[in-house]
Design a protein around this nucleic acid. Structure first.
Length: 485
RNA sequence: GGCCCGUUGGUCAAGUGGUUAAGACACCGCCCUUUCAAGGCGGAGUCACGAGUUCAAUUCUCGUACGGGUCACCA
């Protein structure tokens, strides 16, 4: 009797720098495939390249996964049944398995120097594919002797010279390649570390990964991994290769497309939830569903590898902007208020202001957090007035009529008892009735007087609220003064 | 260059051997409105091309073009 194997995926980043959007999306899909099938998601650090190791990169990985809610079930920080989860701590395993392949004839030591290889690449004449296999046929006994004598070497995979290899990918379908196209790739480097090409197979098998999910750039090396699995007699996992994410010019996403790392986007003012939602829909869509706003919890329920596309997807900031707006509007008010406060406090410095109204006004207008300072600049500093600011065709307003209106308004506002929305609103409404003016005229004049800006976040009463009585009256006086002269 | 993969509006995309080929972003217009937004309503815009299979191809097959990936002691 067989137990259905539990789905297990892994996110296996190398600590070589920032958490790129492409990496994050791989992590997300890996997480979702596991969760959608009630399986496990694990984290493995692939630090076999000592030269590209970046200090702090591992911490950034933990941090990002955590704020995105992609919690793993096994990993370096929490352990698990198949540890260690850091490749540099698994070195002995790789060499054992490599020895096994050498013994079975599936691999061989290669003594070629990097210099010789470099020369070889320069030789345009030769039409060989990759390494010229010079060491492939050294007598095993002699090779073993040279290795024992301490001669520098790498271990290479002995590829079949004929036949073909076929595998099936969940996204790309059945793929077949001629074995003669495959290079005798390096499995163990001369420093004793495994290459990705070797370590991923060993670890995925040992860690019982059922679904190998990764970017489509690995598609062309997958046949080599299949041959490795076969050499060990291991079951080949399900492959799920993901389409690439490209920039708006169709080229691979890079710095010149703007912010492409998770942390940069957050710094730009995008909410992690919006970023996750955005990249979930890059190259994937739930069939027969037109909604596009999904929380991570909801994605876990509806995600299916079936909906993954093959074609590269363009990362569009327009759409991200929209998503972010949607998420901002759905935020619990208290949370949103706290975000606004954190940004606005230092800008208002010592000055008092009405955070609640500001947060309220900003909520429907902000695209990303980093827009806020510029949007509220007119509140934190007094901008210079210009007569034409008061001109509004529709309200039939101009500087002269504004001057009259503001003078009428001033005494009323100065004596208002309670400085709050309802009182101000009522007072202004009343003023319109008394003078027979249109509301748009009065409101418009006051709004510009308070803001010194044509386009503002919020209307006249809201601006008056945010500024507070003292500042609002001071600005009103300043406006009147300006219009007089 | 070899090999591999891809191609539904500007972008993300649903979908099918017979459909008026969904929806979203962006764009345009209107409404609402105390400005700007938000919101509501509406509009324009797509099956890369050429053969073949078929009563019928966007859908299946083969070519072409274009795009991408990969050919490291990087992952």
């Amino acid at each position: 009797m067989f137990m259905a194997k539990i789905t297990k995926t892994r996110f296996a980043p190398s600590p070589t720098g920032i958490m790129h959007i492409g990496n994050l999306r791989s992590a997300l899909y890996e997480y979702l495939i596991a969760r959608s099938e009630g399986g496990k998601f694990l984290l493995r650090i692939e630090d076999t390249d000592r030269e590209r190791y970046v200090e702090g990169a591992v911490e950034a990985i933990y941090r990002t996964l955590d704020v995105c809610g992609l919690h793993h079930d096994e990993g370096p920080d929490i352990g698990g049944p198949n540890g260690p989860y850091v490749q540099s701590e698994r070195l002995h395993l790789y060499s054992e398995y490599a020895d096994q392949l050498v013994a079975s004839g599936h691999a061989y030591p290669c003594f070629c120097s990097v210099e010789r290889l470099a020369d070889m690449w320069e030789d345009e004449e030769t039409e060989f594919i990759g390494y010229d296999r010079r060491c492939r046929d050294i007598d095993p006994a002699i090779a073993a002797h040279r290795v024992a004598a301490g001669e520098p070497h790498v271990i290479r995979q002995r590829m079949p010279l004929d036949g073909e290899t076929t595998f099936s990918d969940e996204v790309y379908g059945v793929i077949t390649v001629m074995n003669q196209e495959l290079e005798d790739q390096i499995l163990i480097k001369s420093d004793g570390y495994p290459t990705y090409n070797f370590a991923n197979v060993i670890d995925d098998h040992l860690m019982e990964i059922t679904h190998v999910v990764r970017g489509s750039e690995y598609l062309s090396s997958t046949p080599k991994y299949c041959i490795l699995y076969d050499a060990f007699g291991w079951e080949i996992p399900t492959f799920v290769h993901l389409p690439l994410i490209v920039g708006e010019d169709g080229k691979k996403l890079s710095k010149r497309h703007g912010s492409t790392s998770f942390e940069e986007l957050v710094k730009d003012g995008y909410l992690p939830e919006a970023i996750i939602n955005m990249i979930a829909f890059l190259g994937w869509a739930p069939g027969g569903e037109t909604r596009e706003i999904f929380s991570l919890d909801e994605l876990e329920k509806i995600f299916s590898a079936k909906g993954i596309n093959k074609a590269p997807a363009v990362f569009a900031y327009d759409k991200l902007n929209w998503m972010n707006e949607q998420y901002i509007r759905r935020l619990p008010f208290e949370k949103w208020r706290a975000m606004v406060k954190e940004i606005a406090d230092p800008l208002f410095d010592e000055k008092k202001y009405d955070v609640d109204t500001l947060a309220h006004v900003l909520r429907e207008r902000v695209t990303k957090l980093s827009d806020i300072p510029e949007m509220i600049r007119f509140l934190t500093e007094r901008l210079p007035y210009e007569r034409e600011l008061f001109f509004n065709k529709r309200a039939k307003l101009d500087a002269d009529s504004a001057s009259v209106i503001l003078n009428e308004l001033r005494p009323k506002l100065e004596t208002v008892a309670v400085w709050d929305e309802t009182t101000l609103s009522a007072l202004l409404g009343q003023a319109c009735e008394e003078t027979g003016r249109k509301k748009g005229q009065v409101m418009g004049a006051l709004r510009v007087a308070l803001a010194a800006q044509r386009v503002t976040s919020g209307g006249a009463t809201e601006t008056a609220m945010i500024l507070g009585r003292e500042e609002a009256l001071a600005r009103l006086a300043a406006a009147i003064d300006y219009l007089k002269g």
